[in-house]
Design a protein around this nucleic acid. Structure first.
Lengths: 262, 262
DNA sequence: TTTTAATAATTGGTAATACATATTGGTCAA
DNA sequence: TTGACCAATATGTATTACCAATTATTAAAA
């Protein structure tokens, strides 16, 4: 209850800092990104600029952001990725790790989720639907928000951090991105339905059903990943073929002046 | 900067917070003492009230002071900083995160484990038995090796990394250490049996049983943690009582010369 | 093309003010 | 004397408005 969100009598800077912390965790401001200027934040959160400054200082002391005078406030990475070489991970590994961990998080969240968080989830779902309708396929913010809210509802900070970390890694993998776009393009509505199913199990506080729903969701993601990886493989072969053909023709054209040396 | 007290180009709130930190460390404001009001501090340090507020918030986030609305700012004990420091996780959180993740890792390992890895596990178990017999209670190397082999057998590098990371964190928590020592001292053989049970389920390639066995193992760790935490709490109360008694006797001795004025 | 100066954007910091809450002290009645 | 209530005071909370200092961007000049 010490860290619970009894926001009524809490001081404003704490309330704001909590919200900004969630925004940071949800990937709204990835590491290195510049946050909006103080004045804009003060409008967004409906508080004065000094209060925003206080919240930013709190985040700064927590080591989550860095303030550069005259330039802006920048998000730092929250999870010290020591000798963690994210580039070496395959998208399948990441997804497998995520399915294991996030399914358990969902199961736990089924018993810890508050009404406010359920409302947040519905909001994220709504955003997802809007993104889907508007044809915005590149954005994953609503998706990430959805998963982030579930993670936060467990109130287990190491777990939140781990989930966030895995998302950060996968966000940098191009295969994941194309797979995500592909699944949005071909089965957008189905994907929405999966998220809604998860939401419903959480509403019912059915931890077993939540685990299953989350697993189903990921298993579809994994399928999409397999499919697009296959497509990419075919595409790659074709590209290499074309490249070879082009180089061959180029070499013939330039042969009289200078041979290619690469 | 035109101000004479130019300490590099650091921001004012940091400069002030450093000074106040020094004052706290020097015992100028012992634990529980009330700091001067904001208005007075702003005069003393020659800065405006908002800046003083910023410095106080920094100290608050660092867990050095506590602010009570309408009453004042109070110094806290420099060690008892568990309020909101996100870097420091509670041992319960860590253990909860581990039980979720490592149980799934065990379930996965049940199908991926090789014969060589099973042999390694048996070796780790043997080491654990030897450690237990020799009365070496502080070492956790065999325990860690056991869990590490299971993690590695999943061949999922992100998962391995996460498990490693959580172990690194918990290894630095004193509560975990004492709990581990306690469980080794009181129920060493039972702990060995739990590990053997996990090993057996992996030999049988029974992923469900592996998950359950791992959960059981952790649930016992959690119990031990609860117990030792309780013991520590009792110890703390006893210590404080003794401290008070000592102080009381001192005041009686000094009463003839000077009455205590607190 | 590179360098430099002007301009805009952004954080840094202060002052004055109003408000909310906790503490204090005093009055009055039982 | 004791207890309860109430008003005054002290203290933190938060806002608005303003200007200064620093950095980033752009345009002009060499």
């Amino acid at each position: 209850m010490s860290t619970a969100s009894g926001k009524k009598n809490q001081r404003t800077y704490r309330r704001v800092a909590q919200k900004m912390l969630k925004a940071l965790d949800s990937g709204q401001f990835p590491a290195g990104a510049r946050l909006p200027p103080e004045r804009e934040l003060s409008e967004r959160y409906g508080v004065s600029r000094p209060t925003i400054r206080e919240a930013i200082i709190a985040l700064e002391v927590m080591g989550r952001v860095e303030v550069q005078t005259g330039s802006g406030v920048y998000a730092l990475k929250s999870f010290q990725t020591k000798s963690d070489n994210p580039r070496e991970y395959s998208p399948f590994e990441i997804t497998e790790a995520r399915v294991l961990i996030e399914s358990e998080a969902a199961a736990l969240a089924a018993s810890t989720m508050t009404e406010a968080e359920l409302t947040e989830l519905e909001g994220a779902l709504k955003e997802m639907i809007e993104e889907n309708d508007s044809g915005n396929l590149t954005s994953e913010v609503a998706d990430r928000k959805f998963h982030s809210v579930i993670a936060h509802s467990t109130q287990n900070r190491p777990l939140i951090n781990v989930i966030q970390h895995l998302w950060d890694i996968q966000a940098n993998l191009p295969e994941i991105k194309t797979a995500h776009q592909s699944v949005c393009r071909t089965d957008g509505s189905k994907r929405i339905e999966e998220h809604r199913a998860i939401l419903n199990t959480l509403k019912d506080r059915d931890c077993h059903a939540a685990r299953v729903a989350m697993r189903n969701h990921f298993s579809r993601s994994l399928d999409a990943l397999h499919t697009t990886t296959e497509e990419r493989a075919v595409e790659e072969v074709r590209r290499q073929l074309n490249e070879r053909r082009e180089r061959f023709s180029l070499s013939r054209i330039q042969y009289t002046s200078k041979p290619e040396s690469i």
